[in-house]
Design a protein around this nucleic acid. Structure first.
Lengths: 335, 335
DNA sequence: GTGAAAGCGCTAACAC
DNA sequence: GTGTTAGCGCTTTCAC
């Protein structure tokens, strides 16, 4: 591939001039500029971003770490960051971290090797201490969907506990008293907090969840199916289920109906996340809206600011989002 | 951020030695190696991938151009490429192209600037000639979801026309004679070919589609809703609809039911793509399976081979995929 | 086994 | 307005 030197040679100018033209720099004669531009087009010159990054010390790429792309929730996250990247003429470098601490660490490391100025990190497995070190190393690093007190001004997170409470209040307002729960088998913060909030709110109304009516599974459609089967197998009565996320909730509904239970008339189901799917499932899913795209944009924007030494940040800020109840068709008054 | 020089200085060796250690190179004394490794860890050294790419002339990143991430179809595409990237210890650089030729061109250009060795390009708008030039410039470039004769061995594509034919045969086998079509308003190859095949097959059975029963819309849920409303407004009878993709089909079903038509008992609906959603919609969608993830993997793998000068490729190969009919619940015998 | 040095393609002073 | 030059951080001969 042709380089700046080739252009310079053919156009009969120095490489400095070519560089100026390429960067729309000042002080270049009009005839020179047009001539250089023509040569560039002729020989198909494309500047080498790696070389440029090396000398300018900035790569103009935004790095994102997410577990995987097929989950619509994470796709939305990446999409939010991408939108901010476009606005700033930056590129998205995507690193999938899957679910182990090791692979998350490796994913983030790749981004640092590439000298991403700006990184939005969704990490569930890396220990706080390691995250603190990373944050220290990369000024433009922001955590999404996680909260660490020492770097609270660099965390964009959702109040999962409050989400659990809202779900509980909603179900109680519909007079459900015997509720089951389906949670994620990955014992990370989110499921724990959601369950905690849910349980607390029930308790404060003198209700409790029967431990046997709590099941755990993979946080996807199939996980919801299996967990529901297990709960059903116990043979204990319940009139509503609080499910960890929408995918599991839809899996749960499918299983319930296969077993002769009508949703919502026999059993109400409430999900979490409000992914697109939840608006088009039958019955349409009542769920808690998780404004992930908005949060991702905020995260990218914040990371951009942090990476810019000229802007100073109030390190006491907090970026906590509250999930919103979206009432649709899968929950009704207890019959 | 610390550099190779810092490591060299602290460890009391030359940068060449550090480089050897960093790359697991040969001929380094054991004590030296451990000492250098320790220093690296101590000062938190992370090699600069840009500098490395500059000298080695390879970036070990796979570039992908897709319109956007939120469409599950494209997310699957990106995911397929990502899996191959992981296998080869490469990174995914994602460039979203949206829908204009200009933005697609710009998206691919960013990838070339970054000197991606390997590029999987989903382009609908760029003219054949321009694509040919790009392919010439970047040996590791592969087109997905598009066919250009001159570079047929670098195209991974689906036989959309055959898909249309299969859909037509399926509907005819269920004795539908009056069929409507919903197509994409973006008059690119896919919708045109699908409609063509569909129409041809009907014709060969002496059936025709009433032009008034063909409507065009955005290829998403809402587009399907609007197109269906328009068709309904014509007041012409029909017993089945062939829809451009699953999202539109689900939108169509929702609108049909809102207007008092039962799917499939009153009207059968067949979609295209077989995205995850189609398995969980009610009724479950009959559709044509588009093996996009498999094709994306193939594309990435092929691009990888192409980028490697040591492997030579049979330039007469073709990579045509045939969609498969997936019968679910949204189509039945005409009543 | 280790080091010195050249150079990848580019930008950014600094001269003229 | 244009050219010369010194690196950016790294790999890779080529000596020793």
């Amino acid at each position: 591939m042709s380089t700046i030197k080739d252009v310079a040679r053919v156009a009969g100018v120095s490489i400095a001039t070519v560089s100026r033209v390429a960067n729309n720099g000042p002080k270049v004669g009009d005839k020179t500029r047009t001539r250089v531009l023509k040569v560039m087009a002729d020989i198909g010159y494309t500047p080498n971003a790696n070389a440029r990054a090396l000398v300018t010390q900035k790569s103009s790429t935004i790095g994102v770490v997410i577990p995987d792309l097929t989950d619509p929730f994470f796709a939305s996250l990446a999409n939010g960051v991408d939108q901010i990247a476009r606005q700033h003429n930056m590129q998205l470098l995507l690193s999938t971290g899957l679910i182990s601490a090791e692979s998350e660490l490796q994913a983030i490391n790749v981004l640092i090797e590439r000298r991403c100025d700006v990184i939005v990190l969704h990490s569930k497995k890396i220990a706080n201490d390691d995250l603190l070190k990373l944050a220290d190393k990369v000024p433009g690093l922001v955590l999404i969907d996680r909260y660490i007190e020492q770097i609270s001004h660099r965390c964009i997170w959702l109040d999962n506990e409050e989400g659990g409470r809202i779900a509980a209040r909603h179900l109680m307002s519909l007079e459900h008293r015997d509720v089951a729960c389906i949670s994620s088998k990955y014992q990370i913060d989110d499921p724990l907090m959601r369950l905690q909030g849910f349980s607390d709110e029930l308790n404060s109304a003198n209700l409790t969840i029967d431990d046997e009516l709590i099941e755990y599974g993979e946080p996807n459609l199939q996980g919801g199916e299996i967990a529901t089967q297990k709960i059903l197998a116990k043979g204990k009565p319940f009139s509503a289920i609080f499910v960890y996320n929408d995918a599991m909730a839809i899996g749960a509904i499918s299983t319930l109906e296969d077993n002769g239970f009508k949703v919502p008339s026999d059993i109400s189901v409430i999900g979490f996340d409000d992914v697109l799917l939840s608006r088009y499932s039958r019955p349409k899913l009542t769920t808690l809206h998780y404004p992930i795209e908005k949060m991702a944009k905020k995260a990218a924007f914040l990371a951009l600011q942090l990476s810019n030494k000229n802007v100073d940040i109030d390190s006491s800020s907090e970026y906590k989002y509250i999930p919103q109840l979206v009432k649709r068709e899968s929950t009704v008054f207890k019959s």
